[in-house]
Every structure is written in structure tokens, then in C-alpha cells.
Deep mutational scan, measured.
Amino acid sequence: MDCGICYAYQLDGTIPDQVCDNSQCGQPFHQICLYEWLRGLLTSRQSFNIIFGECPYCSKPITLKMS
């Protein structure tokens, strides 16, 4: 499936590997796309290497662990 942010399947050789945990959403994202999206939200917060925010599609909580 394509990334829900950039709408591409491959981005710099990677495929969407982050998925919204909401079973009714399940939208996939590239890690870098989701990172940039969450960084741009005023409501997002970060604790060590984990960013907490809202899914761009369903607005439910989503987390991103940076590797």
C-alpha cells in the first residue's frame, strides 16, 4: 500500500513500514513521512526516541519509535 502522507509506495528505497494502530484505520506510512508529520503538530510530544501524536487520517493516537 502507498504511504498516507506522500502517496508513494517507495521513498528512498523504503516501503511504508509504520501503520496506524487503530483497527478501523490501519493506514501505512513511511517512517520519515510520519516523523515529519508528527514534528509539525503542536500537540505531538517526544520522550527519548518515541514521538506521540495523532494519525493524519483518523486522528487517533499514534506513536513512532525512531531507530
Results as ranks from 00 to 15, higher is better:
D2Q: 08
D2A: 10
D2T: 07
D2L: 05
C3D: 03
C3E: 00
C3A: 02
C3F: 03
C3L: 00
C3P: 02
G4S: 04
I5G: 03
I5R: 02
I5S: 02
I5V: 08
C6D: 02
C6T: 00
C6L: 00
C6W: 01
Y7T: 11
Y7V: 02
Y7L: 13
Y7A: 12
Y7S: 11
A8Y: 15
A8L: 09
A8G: 14
A8M: 13
A8Q: 14
A8I: 04
A8N: 04
Y9L: 06
Y9P: 03
Y9S: 06
Y9R: 14
Y9W: 06
Q10H: 12
Q10T: 13
Q10W: 12
Q10Y: 11
Q10C: 12
Q10G: 05
Q10R: 13
L11Y: 10
L11N: 03
L11F: 15
L11A: 07
L11R: 12
D12H: 03
D12M: 08
D12L: 07
G13V: 04
G13L: 04
G13C: 05
G13F: 02
G13R: 04
G13H: 05
G13Q: 07
T14V: 09
T14H: 11
T14S: 09
T14I: 08
T14E: 14
T14N: 09
T14M: 14
I15W: 12
I15L: 12
I15R: 05
I15P: 09
I15V: 09
I15G: 06
I15Y: 13
P16L: 00
P16K: 02
P16T: 03
D17R: 01
D17A: 09
D17M: 04
Q18S: 05
Q18A: 06
Q18I: 14
Q18D: 02
Q18M: 08
V19G: 04
V19C: 04
V19Q: 07
V19A: 08
V19F: 12
V19P: 03
V19D: 02
V19T: 15
C20W: 01
C20A: 01
C20V: 00
D21P: 11
D21Y: 08
D21N: 06
D21F: 11
D21L: 11
D21K: 12
D21R: 07
D21A: 06
N22H: 03
N22P: 02
N22K: 03
N22W: 04
N22D: 04
S23V: 12
S23E: 14
S23R: 11
S23F: 12
S23C: 07
S23P: 10
Q24S: 09
Q24F: 09
Q24P: 14
Q24M: 13
Q24C: 08
Q24I: 05
Q24L: 07
Q24Y: 13
C25L: 00
C25V: 01
C25R: 01
C25M: 00
G26H: 10
G26L: 14
G26W: 02
G26T: 09
G26R: 11
G26C: 03
G26S: 07
G26N: 06
Q27V: 14
Q27M: 09
P28D: 01
P28L: 12
P28M: 12
P28G: 09
P28V: 10
P28Q: 15
F29K: 00
F29T: 02
H30R: 00
H30S: 00
H30D: 02
H30W: 00
H30M: 01
Q31V: 14
Q31G: 05
Q31I: 12
Q31W: 07
I32C: 14
I32P: 01
I32V: 08
I32S: 14
C33D: 01
C33A: 03
C33F: 01
L34S: 01
Y35E: 06
Y35S: 10
Y35A: 06
Y35T: 11
Y35M: 06
E36N: 15
E36V: 05
E36Q: 08
E36T: 09
W37V: 05
W37G: 03
W37L: 12
L38F: 10
L38Y: 01
L38A: 02
L38V: 07
L38N: 15
L38R: 04
L38K: 04
R39S: 13
R39M: 08
G40C: 01
G40K: 14
G40D: 07
G40V: 08
G40T: 09
G40E: 15
L41S: 10
L41W: 10
L41V: 09
L42E: 14
L42M: 08
L42V: 14
L42D: 15
L42A: 12
L42Q: 14
L42W: 10
L42S: 14
T43W: 07
T43P: 05
T43C: 10
T43R: 07
T43A: 09
S44V: 10
S44G: 08
S44T: 15
S44I: 05
S44R: 12
R45A: 14
Q46E: 14
Q46P: 04
Q46R: 11
Q46D: 10
S47I: 07
S47L: 10
S47G: 14
F48M: 13
F48S: 06
F48K: 06
F48E: 06
I50C: 10
I50Q: 13
I50F: 05
I50K: 11
I50L: 09
I50R: 14
I50M: 13
I50H: 05
F52A: 15
G53E: 01
G53W: 01
G53M: 01
C55L: 00
C55T: 01
C55R: 05
C55A: 00
P56R: 04
P56S: 00
P56Q: 03
Y57R: 13
Y57H: 03
Y57P: 06
Y57L: 12
C58E: 00
S59N: 07
S59H: 14
S59E: 13
S59F: 10
S59D: 04
S59G: 12
S59V: 03
S59C: 15
K60R: 10
P61E: 15
P61S: 04
I62M: 11
I62G: 01
I62E: 02
T63P: 03
T63R: 10
T63L: 07
L64Q: 06
L64V: 13
K65V: 08
K65I: 08
K65T: 11
K65A: 09
K65Q: 02
M66W: 12
M66K: 13
